[in-house]
């Protein structure tokens, strides 16, 4: 059975403007993907593409005005979107753990880190406190924190960024989750620390057979640490497939541009075709969300796009998927 299955998820921000008119920002528009145990899926995209919102929608951390308006999120066959909070709380932090971008603001500044780990274990697993404490020390050791005994007694402000991120990872592992969601786990950390954290994450995934969702804007992280990739743009997954397939033969124009913009592939003189305004979520165009920025766009792109399978397990949300080469690229002014 698929561990996590997200189907046609729509999340909107519904608010009222100054004239008391309802305005709707369509932030997620039909996001679908699934994740098996032991697999690592990387979600990439630019700011505002809906990466973090996807994660928050899955674990039910949305706050008004954000609201899931359609779609389903199934975890081990159970629907999460309409689950009461009390029941959801038994899954969150237990079977589903989350590591967020900013490690320092995610720790309670008034509690020693060891106690925070113990507290999380007590809530979900109960049992004697000494057992929880032992588990906390084990997990701190597993994430490579030197001298867990004394580290457990330190306060969050005494930790460096890399160490705080390790503590968050240890916290996520406390209840042996089946699904780990890491939202930009290494953004803001130095490359050498990033390497340590990612190595650690990978060995933990293998050791505990966790399914992992990594949200990042760093294609390097995806290229080397994920099995599968999902590229998001304007609240939709525009391309998905195995990392190897997508990097070798990107089928969606946006993915192509994204890969072309990495320092390794970037060629001077091409940048004008790459950038551009993100789509206006309040007023999405009909059809393809990329059409205003796409060099290949035609009238056909104003009609509804369907996911096309360009190779086995490799999908792209584009009318011209798999036959972009036949399509003349039009110069556009970015």
């Amino acid at each position: 059975m698929t561990l996590l299955k997200v189907e046609d998820l729509h999340t909107h921000f519904i608010s009222r403007d100054l004239d008391n008119q309802i305005c709707i920002a369509k932030a997620l528009n039909g996001v679908s993907f699934s994740l098996e145990a032991g697999r690592v899926l990387g979600i990439v995209g630019e700011t505002g593409a809906g990466k973090s919102l996807t994660a928050q929608s899955i674990v039910g951390l949305l706050r008004p005005p954000a609201k899931i308006v359609a779609g389903s999120v199934r975890f081990e066959g159970r629907e999460l979107t309409d689950m009461p909070d009390a029941e959801l709380n038994r899954i969150r932090g237990n079977n589903i753990a989350m590591v967020v971008q900013n490690p320092r603001t995610s720790l309670d500044p008034l509690t020693r880190v060891g106690d925070q780990l113990v507290r999380l274990h007590q809530i979900h697993s109960g049992g004697p406190k000494t057992a929880s404490h032992k588990r906390a020390l084990e997990m701190m050791e597993a994430v490579g924190l030197p001298d867990p005994e004394s580290r457990a007694k330190s306060w969050p402000h005494e930790l460096s960024g890399g160490m705080a991120q390790r503590v968050l990872l240890a916290m996520a592992l406390m209840n042996s989750p089946k699904l780990l969601i890491a939202d930009e786990p290494t953004t803001g950390l130095d490359v050498t620390v990033q390497a340590q954290i990612l190595d650690l994450l990978r060995s933990l995934v293998a050791r505990f057979d966790m399914a992992t969702l990594i949200i990042t804007h760093d294609l390097g992280v995806v290229a080397h640490f994920c099995n599968d990739i999902a590229v998001m743009f304007g609240g939709s997954i525009v391309e998905t497939g195995s990392v190897r397939d997508v990097f070798a033969a990107p089928a969606h124009p946006y993915t192509r541009n994204l890969i072309a913009a990495t320092p390794e592939r970037f060629q001077m003189g091409r940048a004008k075709a790459l950038g551009g305004q993100p789509p206006d979520l309040y007023n999405l165009p009909s059809g393809c969300v990329l059409q205003s920025r796409c060099a290949y766009a035609t009238e056909l792109c104003q009609t509804t796009v369907r996911n096309a399978e360009v190779a086995e397990g490799h999908f792209a949300l584009c009318h011209y998927a798999g036959r972009l080469e036949e399509q003349p690229a039009v110069k556009i002014n970015a």
Binding site: Q194, A223, R244, F247, A248, I259, P263, R265
Partner: peptide, 10 residues
């Protein structure tokens, strides 16, 4: 060596 080029073939 900690730098990750955005290319899985690398």
């Amino acid at each position: 060596s900690a730098h990750l080029p955005a290319d899985p073939a690398f």
